[in-house]
Design a protein around this nucleic acid. Structure first.
Lengths: 252, 252
DNA sequence: CGCGCCGTTGATATTATTCAAGACCAGTGG
DNA sequence: CCACTGGTCTTGAATAATATCAACGGCGCG
């Protein structure tokens, strides 16, 4: 592994780039339409930008935060991608989410002021740091921000429910199809190709996310390829037959 | 079934009891320590009570809200218990949660102003209705309430993560053990016995929640009984060997 | 160039599901 | 009061799905 030890556990104190030229500019950020400032008035936007003047950069393999680390901020992915993993009591680890630009991270941490999961960069990534105390303060003055924050948290709950449905009631084949379709949609929403993309995770990480073993994931990729649903070469995926893939998960 | 059709879909408009004597009194509610008003100053508490003057009663089998129904309010369970179920695209249904007094329901609905799941009473139940718009308004003036609301949402996310872990990485045996231990803890937190309780769900509902078939759940109960971990008679459960049960899920 | 991680594939083992039959239990109506 | 009924629960045997174990090829990186 290129980065055996996490380099950057508490970005807000250790490696934050706070040079003025690097300040976040929500107004011009390409992820604005997907991110927290969505729909805010210009004056409110300025206030929000003022409090999230910091960004943090992570190298592949770096941790944004660790399980149990004090919760201080929310993070918005600007560039790159991350996985979040949860730990069971007996030490088993499971990938709980896969996060791309525009996604908010850390929402699970404010329940007891400690992060309940670990966030690891899957590639070199860049994030906005949003000190949560200040977000809460500002939210009291800016109803639109307050409402957006609530919506983000609620959507996270909905997302988790869909994953629970996937893990609890779908067969391996359906799970992988659902995973690929989910990625496809999210890339599309970000202006990327919905049919051709590169997986940022290993087979093992995908399997962990889907409640399967890496061998099963590998076999399924081969099977999908044989059946002409996708073309797979390592981590490069090209979706060939979207309708059949959708049929697999019951979407029409 | 005693209640073939849901009787009460929109409690806030149809069957709400609004007589003054039935007003909620958070101050004297036995679930106060677990519920939204936790830690609020007396004056703030009064404001909160003022806006949740309504309660609603459900009979066993009644729906509190349906999947896709407009989101208008959060609900706090005062008495009884409910299940929430999510629906997959192809019509499969899965129990996503089991809710008892002090729990908040509906947090998944505000992301797109529609409930993403269905809440059904597992027994005759009573809930506080909290119009969300007014909760948001009040939260802007009462930081403690704002923070509590955020904590509740965050904890829901954490809870879902633990369920994902259960569904994705535990064997059937471990899942049922984790389920029983979770119930045990929650009953304990509410002042009930942590070792003896009555399940409000059928084997099928438990199985749905745990990603198992009802026969598997039944077999596991029998197995646990044979092994002296629990005593089961229908829905009555008595936990005999808590340590071994905990060991099963990896808690020490 | 070689090492370590990653991915693939096959053979086998395990786990949970499916199918099937029957017991139990509460509520209902004769 | 008892038989009947529908829903629930239990249990067994056969089956299907996925995991496990194992071997190997490939690729990237030091």
């Amino acid at each position: 592994m290129a980065n055996p030890a996490p380099r950057n556990t508490f970005p807000s104190t250790s490696k934050v780039v706070s040079i003025d030229s690097l300040r976040s500019h929500c107004a011009t950020c390409s992820m604005r339409a997907l991110c927290l400032p969505l729909g805010l008035a210009e004056t409110d936007l300025a206030e929000l930008e003022a409090l999230l003047g910091n960004r943090t950069k992570l190298k592949k393999g770096d941790a944004l935060f660790h399980n149990g680390a004090p919760f201080t901020a929310l993070y918005a992915v600007k560039l790159g991608s991350l996985k979040t993993t949860v730990l069971s009591d007996d030490g088993r680890e499971q990938v709980a989410g896969y996060h791309m630009p525009g996604d908010l991270l850390g929402l699970d941490g404010l329940g007891d002021d400690r992060h309940g999961c670990e966030a690891i960069a899957l590639e070199d990534s860049e994030l906005c740091v949003m000190p949560f105390g200040r977000i809460e303060d500002l939210a009291r003055h800016v109803p639109a921000l307050q409402h957006n924050l609530h919506k983000f948290m609620s959507r996270e709950i909905e997302r988790d429910h869909r994953v629970m449905l996937l893990l609890g009631s779908m067969r391996a084949e359906e799970r992988l199809a659902a995973f690929l379709l989910n990625l496809s949609e999210r890339y599309k929403a970000r202006g990327y190709s919905s049919t051709e993309f590169v997986l940022r995770m290993t087979r093992e990480e995908i399997g962990s996310y889907l409640g399967l073993k890496l061998e099963t994931v590998s076999r399924l990729f081969s099977k999908f390829q044989e059946e002409g649903l996708v073309m797979v070469a390592g981590r490069s995926v090209k979706i060939i037959d979207m309708p059949v893939l959708k049929q697999l998960v019951g979407q029409c």
